[in-house]
Design a protein around this nucleic acid. Structure first.
Lengths: 200, 200, 200, 200
DNA sequence: CATGAATGAGTTTTCATTCAT
DNA sequence: AATGAATGAAAACTCATTCAT
């Protein structure tokens, strides 16, 4: 492992580093981390394998930065959209959120799978995902409380909601089950989410 | 890849094959499939690498049999417990089911992670899990209908319920989030599941 | 390598040894010596791998005995047919000889190829073939001299004749060249052989 | 098998690839293809095993390139010498051709054996040899016809001639038979070849 | 800075041979 | 004698990482 990792400051160098991350993103998404080798990454990025090791400690380090990009692409938009909430009008909000998340998943589902597959064996990925979910849950929960939400167990409710939204998106994206009608399922999910937050 | 796979018939040979599967089970669970090599499996099983290739086509074939064991240990008990239902008394059933599934997950969570991590890159694992979920969903749905359930969208409801139970078990097992109170979450989940099936 | 090789004397044991040789014959002929393993030989012979090592020192030893069979099947018939000569009537003899040899080659060409392919890397096979050719050449040459042949260089002529007959048989069996008419070639070869022995 | 084979462009890299081919040439010639392993080839070439797999798909691919070298060393010179013919003066040509071929065989006889030994079990080698013989035969035949040769069956005659020249060279190189006088045999062969082409 | 050739330990897999039963 | 399970050394091949140019 290289002792010193260059922090690219020149524009060209930064672009080069980004090219590598993008190449890693696509290859990891398409073939998985363990089925991708550094030569392929370098080639796809249009750089030499040597230069990869100037910008990254090792192959795992590329993964870590790819993970950051994924987070920026997928998680942040969700959080941001939720932070625009200005009232507890769940009936209006939830359908939009669900559609947005499904859409984001459709665009990034390969990467999602590739990264999740590493949570078991690559601690750094696992930690990142947990931290991320924590952030999302906390920010949403805080927002709700700010808006006057007072049903109790807000963290638990938000966390479940987030997970269920992910679960449904996942189902939609993979569409593995012939016997499932996803429109009907969507209605049921929306009902569940509403019941989760609204007192009955 | 060896042409012919030995079907062990003698007691000792069957035990040896099982030793290999067990060794694979533990190592895959602990370190992941890609971080385990055949030499380690053989060593842990107390056999030579050669004999591994008499009983299995290749390393992936060991995984497939490990997967079978996992399925027998985790999925089948759930399905069996559900098939004993004799009335649509969800209030009584659901808490038991949830406890059972959480318990099974706690016992097998490493393997669960290791196997799920392969769904992205190893088609045979993915297919197995999908087939399994289909079976579980269909058997439960059929049972409900037999018992007179008539709310509609039974497949979608059952599928969601199964996923949510898994999701909750997963949360309990990993217990990653300090801000979550799992007892409270359990109550919320039970409520969600009941609402999913009971007309309001 | 086993220290002691059993000399089978009982009928059943002899049959078993022959089964192994036959199995080796076919497998070596079909797939080549290096592409055949002892398990395949044993299986085809209907015996255990262990028993193979009671009757043969090692895999090479099976080859040696297969070679003997080949010699008995292919070379001896030729020699015997030639030893029946009772006059130097080449016009009558040569067409028959050529037809016979081509026929034998057609029946055994796989083995011929498999064995010849080993002459380079397995000395024992090479030695056997040389010894064999020597025998054939000497026996034919002696026969010719006995019958009054007196053109000189009889060994050289016979040796060449033998080689040319083999060469032609080989051509006929493999039939690799679309531009060759084997009937025409046969006439030319017969003419060559006759000219080789008959003074002009 | 590596996806991409490096095409060495720098002088040193080309030299290295050639070193590997040379090492393969010698080892295959000395010990045979199946008795040579990639580590030996790499060691003899003074490189690592890894680099071998940058320049060649696999071990067989080394053989294929060795075969090319052999062809360039042995077959092409023969063909070229024959294409210089400017008249059908067989009496002058044939002795020279025979001497040349014998000489080339003497220099390359180990490789010749090693390669021929693979025709049975390695299709690519077999195909190459057949194609090569076809070329030689066709080019010589065409040349003869251009020079006015009109005896008929020119392909069959040339093909036989080529085979007989090889056969004789082979005999000379291995010199296995004590009872053969190769000078006498040479005279006989030359007579045969002449008779093959000259009307009597 | 940049390249991509080079390394070599590590991985999967095979198979002649042995040996417990 | 006979079995076929078991061995383990050896083979082909890969790839993260380094380094000469």
């Amino acid at each position: 492992m290289a002792d010193v990792i260059r922090q690219p400051k020149q524009k060209r160098a930064i672009e080069k580093k980004n090219k590598i991350i993008e190449a890693g993103y696509q290859l990891f998404a398409d073939d998985g981390y363990f089925n991708t080798n550094t030569e392929q990454i370098a080639k796809k990025a249009g750089v030499s394998t040597g230069i990869l090791y100037s910008y990254f400690h090792d192959k795992l380090d590329v993964l870590v930065e790819v993970l950051d990009i994924y987070v920026n692409n997928v998680y942040l938009p969700i959080v941001k959209s939720l932070e625009k909430l200005d009232a507890l009008n769940f009936d209006e909000i939830l359908p939009n959120v669900l559609d947005n998340v499904v859409c984001l998943h459709k665009e990034n589902h390969n990467m999602h799978e590739a990264l999740h597959s590493l949570t078991a064996s690559v601690p750094v990925v696992n930690d990142k995902f947990i931290e991320l979910q924590d952030q999302v849950t906390k920010r949403i929960a805080t927002k709700l409380v700010d808006l006057g939400y007072n049903l109790g167990n807000v963290f638990e409710r938000v966390h479940l909601a987030v997970e269920i939204v992910q679960l449904f998106s996942h189902e939609c994206v993979f569409d593995n089950h012939a016997y499932i009608d996803y429109q009907s399922m969507k209605s049921i999910v929306l009902k569940m989410l509403k019941d989760l937050f609204v007192h009955q």
